[in-house]
Amino acid sequence: MTAKPIEADRIWRGIALLAAYGLPIFFILLPLCGFLVYSLFWVEGTELHYELTLVNYRRFFTDEIYVPVLRQTVVLCLEVAGLCIAFGYPVAYFLSGLKGRKKYTLLMLLLVPLLMSYIIKMYAIRSILGGNGFLNRSLIALGIIDQPLTFFVFNLNAVLLTLSVLLLPFAILPIFLSLERIPKNLLEASADLGGSNAQSFFRVILPLSLPGVISAATFVFVLAIGDFLTPQMVGGQSGFTFGRIIYSQFGTAFNWPFGSALSVILAAVVIVAILVGARFGGEKAGVHR
């Protein structure tokens, strides 16, 4: 009578353990390894050769387009992260200053876009930024410009703006959470010791919210660099990114091994970004305890 539940318990524990370790291994590690293996094959015409070679990696480093595009993409994503922090921080700060129910209602409103379909958001932004979009038409209607502006239409700027708008909630949330964690009496202590509001902000709030800023930047950077759909849809001819190149290798070029090699390189960049973020964030947060 008593043995049964314990036995069942053990089985359940085993299943839970299997799920906790098995799922990530099965759905993340295995596919990644698959990519790694695939990147060592090579293609001739439309024929796939299952022989191990480093030719794909050699091509990445020697061909003159791939490294510059990767660099340009990394810079772009850093800019996206920068923009998201620059706009997300004030919003998060404003939110955390609100009281009671208002705070969380507004937070929810800001986070709703997270749940919306990606495609819908992108079309919405396209219809704002496009040559005939809302922004240009408003500017013309207001008499500020005569011709539609082109510097944010179907180029890298458009990608930058769109990604920033799409990923802004991912920046607001971690910053908001880190601001919420700052005990209010630290601000009272700062004022009590003679600190002005600006001094309290720069000497107490800002440093204590840095872990949140860093995880926000990591989030946004990683999500931005993995995105190929946004550049595809708003980037036009000039808005070329690394993600688009990978996409084209799997699509039109039909060179899966080379696409896999590029994916592995991208994954390496992402892992480095996460490690750097964890290192800085951990260092800052380590002081808390």
């Binding site: 630290l186 202590a189 010791l193 600190g195 440093p207 002081v287």
Partner: peptide, 26 residues
Amino acid sequence: FNTVFQDYALFPHMTVAGNVGYGLKV
């Protein structure tokens, strides 16, 4: 006036010297 708070309210990101010197710093 200066206050000694019940839970101290020390600045966690500053050293002891940084905390103590804060009032003069600002």
